[in-house]
Amino acid sequence: MATQNSRKPDSVPFVNLPREIITEILLRLPVKSLLKFRCVSKSWLSLISSPRFIKTHLEISTNNNIYSHNKIIFISASASHILYTCSFYPEIDDNPTMDIVPIYNHSSHTERVVRVVGSCNGLICLVLEPRIVVILNPATKKSRKLPVSVKSNRLTMDYGFGYDESNNDYKVVEISWTHFISDKYENQVKVYSSKTKSWRIIDGTAGFIVHGCGVFANGAIHWKVQYPDGNPTDWFIIAYNVTTDRYKMVAKPQFETGLLNSLLVVSAGRLCVSCKYFTHADIWVMKEYEVEESWTKLVRVPNYLDLKSQINTTPFFVLENGGVLLKNGFSIVMYRPLNECIEINTKGFVLHVSTYTESLVFPDFGHEDGS
């Protein structure tokens, strides 16, 4: 006769709660817990692995303005082929746990330089130089290597990563350009679609130089660009709409004179621009997309913070309340208004850094059979 201790998992009282209640509870749990709970029963495995559950869990996590599901992901100078993740909140734990995330077939790519392109729906787009693109979910540690695009004789490449929600299509954009005589530049734009699982060449704005990887906001990937024969301070923003496959110009904010540098960042899915001066950096947010008058100054970050060093302090994520994550030389700090600044213990030198929202989304864009 079965004893109380030999009861099957499905007979535990918690599991016998109404399915709707169980679902609502699970939807608010972190990914790490959900991965463990898939072993509770077949019904839980089916629920947690279902596309509807994954999508709803992501929506709840994304709309959580306390950022409890958000993580920092970075590459250390001590091991440039390994990714590490840690929490947004250094004040919670003086010695935060850092997870090591393997890169696709990482043992064969240990000598390659890794670039973090960006994140979307919990997926990270990486480029292993030269031109190996990998889509990774750091939370589930699943990854997918994309086919290499058609060979090109172009010398310089930059990338962007975004999601076409209306067609459930993830896209990677590769922009390359070649320097010809008389400061003439030729561009080529290729787009990888998760729907077609292939690359194709599209028409793009010609003759510009791209500064860094693209920023995904408002359904478009944005780059800071300039023409080679123009004034270094005369830059502009182009946006590639992932649904229409079209480029457009986006107005930049009316910043002050004396600008030293500018950088595109994101806050709660909205496009931001960081404008750096000798004494401070102003971060602007476009509250209403494509409306130039909606550019609003969100926060001012002084250049002289209470830090161990003041080396090339640049923002890489902006919270809605004005908090700013900064890469300060080889370290990461959280700045909050009123000059409060907390260093995040990364236990080593940081080379490249980005953020993501933890999710259960599969890196092969829909099926759990990735490598």
Score class of each variant (00 low, 15 high):
A220Y: 00
C39V: 13
C39F: 14
D234L: 07
Y240A: 06
V324H: 00
E256D: 10
K36D: 11
I66D: 14
P337A: 05
I175P: 00
E292C: 15
I48V: 07
P9K: 01
M98G: 09
R300F: 02
D93G: 12
I72S: 02
E293L: 12
T85Y: 06
P18E: 06
A2P: 14
F365S: 06
L264F: 04
V189D: 00
S41A: 13
K224E: 12
T205S: 15
V291W: 09
A79K: 07
S87N: 12
D158L: 02
L325T: 01
K71H: 15
T244V: 06
I221G: 00
E165K: 15
F330K: 06
I82F: 04
P363Q: 13
K32H: 09
S194N: 11
N153C: 04
E111N: 15
E20Q: 11
R154Q: 10
M157E: 05
I238M: 00
Y163R: 06
T279D: 10
V299W: 03
A206F: 13
H352N: 07
T110I: 12
K287C: 01
Y159L: 03
N70D: 07
I283N: 03
V173E: 01
F53C: 13
L128V: 06
S166K: 13
Y304E: 14
C86S: 15
V285F: 06
I135F: 04
M286K: 06
N105R: 14
A139R: 05
C272F: 01
Y277L: 09
E293F: 04
N70F: 00
R7Y: 02
K197W: 09
K55A: 12
I175V: 14
P232N: 04
S41Y: 09
G118N: 05
G162M: 08
Q4H: 11
I311V: 14
T314S: 14
A77H: 11
S6T: 04
E174K: 11
S43M: 10
G162H: 05
P102I: 08
H69D: 12
S87A: 06
L29G: 02
K252Y: 05
A2M: 12
I283Q: 03
